[in-house]
Nucleic acid binder design. Structure first.
Lengths: 253, 253
DNA sequence: ACTATGATATTGTCCGACAATCCGACAGGC
DNA sequence: GCCTGTCGGATTGTCGGACAATATCATAGT
């Protein structure tokens, strides 16, 4: 029989408390940087026990809506940082068994748009940040880990330059998942560094010239090149991100 | 002065407990659907109090790594659902003051790629789901809310058809933010429904024919059309998503 | 095979307690 | 004036125990 009634929604107190606070934050009644009342005070106001309040706070804390100053004790209203968002999202990708080819495909879709937007709207400062990242990468000798960080910083700087917070937040988790495989590519493909360097150079030039089409086009080529990198490095495209690449690569080396 | 020492990292017990469980889940030692031990048992194993365990569980719960069956009591290992991921992400976009133009730009970047991938890899079932969504939308008379749901379902079905979990997860938050402004467009732009309908038709045809370029191209046009919709409907592109559109639109009507 | 029943286990919530430590004020020495 | 040491109060992190509500599961009944 078709159900006649919805089940009575029962919401535990800790859930309702966390929703109440969340709603106030989203409605901007609690603004970033503002300290939250103490746990005891919240318990008094909501008329629940402090333990219940604490459970609610933990939920908001892990969503990145609440945070604390370094070494601090009290909680402050914050907005989810790139890192918090990126962490959660890349975790989700892993659990959904995304493969490197899936991440690559998403990058191929997103990055040209970011580069194009960056070319359109870059400021002198944001351009300088992009150039700095490219220069740092070009200057590296060895230092695999740092070189990878530079590549990520390059993409990040482009995201910032796009002036689009959506791009900034989407960028982070994709880059995070790219990182491990990038390490393998740099180790195993001798010409990888040179190719990345020249691609970055072309993109930087296009962004500097505010040439949207060129920036977008070069970025598309750059990302396509990554795929070749996977193939040359012997990373199966169907490898799941989050799987340790050591294993799959060990078999090839 | 340049700091000489790293701050001593102190991690509260509830944090370490939640990280321990999270790590086991990511390492797939705890697999989806598996029930978690009871709180008392976890407290015994970690040698902490049950309250501490509960705080840790709330964190994982809000990350979507743990969930419970409808009306159930025990917690099960789950993977973050589209809704959970999308909710958190769109929340983050709002708090970062993303504007409709930002979301639109991201859609313009992502959706053609999704449509292209869907054309390449669609199965008969996933094609059927896309067609069904398009058909439902075309059949609507009035019923604004449901029509909007159909539009979202259309995009969602394309994401599924792409077979790329990254696309699926990225799609959700963008659509969620699109929804309110779409409602305004449908209300205020008479020809909107017809335009959407014909765009969907073209995309469906391209996906059915497995024509990647056509699917991608029509989708690009479709998304570009949304921007025109904003302008005709009198929605300022700089409106922040999450702001109630009633206010901004009221001033225009 | 399905349903009703009841014992048991588990969660949600509360209370009270205490140690650690962060915070701000305040005093003293260079 | 600025840095350092001290101190009391406020706040968090953690603990133990308690109890009602109810989900779960095995059992008995039809």
């Amino acid at each position: 029989m078709r159900p006649m009634f919805e089940p009575l929604g029962y919401a535990p107190a800790y859930w309702r408390v966390s929703e109440a606070i969340r709603a106030r934050i989203l409605r901007r009644e609690l603004v970033e940087g503002q300290p939250l009342p103490t746990e005891t005070e919240l318990a008094r106001q909501f008329e629940v026990n402090r333990s219940t309040v604490r459970e609610a706070l933990r939920k908001l804390e892990s969503n990145g809506l609440l945070g604390r100053r370094r070494g601090g004790k009290r909680l402050y209203v914050t907005r989810p940082t790139r890192e918090a968002v990126g962490g959660g999202l890349s975790e989700a990708f892993e659990l959904h068994r995304a493969r490197v080819v899936d991440v690559w495909e998403a990058l191929q879709s997103v990055q040209p748009g970011i580069a194009g937007a960056a070319a359109l709207r870059r400021t002198d400062e944001s351009l300088a940040a992009i150039e700095a990242a490219a220069r740092r990468f070009a200057g590296r000798q060895g230092e695999r880990e740092k070189a990878i960080g530079d590549v990520a910083a390059f993409f990040d700087a482009l995201g910032e330059a796009s002036g689009n917070p959506v791009f900034v937040l989407l960028n982070e988790p994709l880059l995070r998942l790219l990182t491990p495989s990038l390490a393998v590519i740099i180790d195993r493909v001798p010409q990888a560094r040179a190719r990345i360097e020249s691609a970055q150079k072309a993109i930087v030039d296009a962004v500097r010239a505010r040439d949207e089409a060129a920036a977008s086009g070069w970025m598309a080529r750059h990302v396509r090149d990554f795929r070749r990198g996977y193939e040359v490095a012997g990373i199966p495209l169907s490898t799941e991100v989050g799987d340790s690449l050591d294993a799959t690569v060990a078999g090839v080396s």
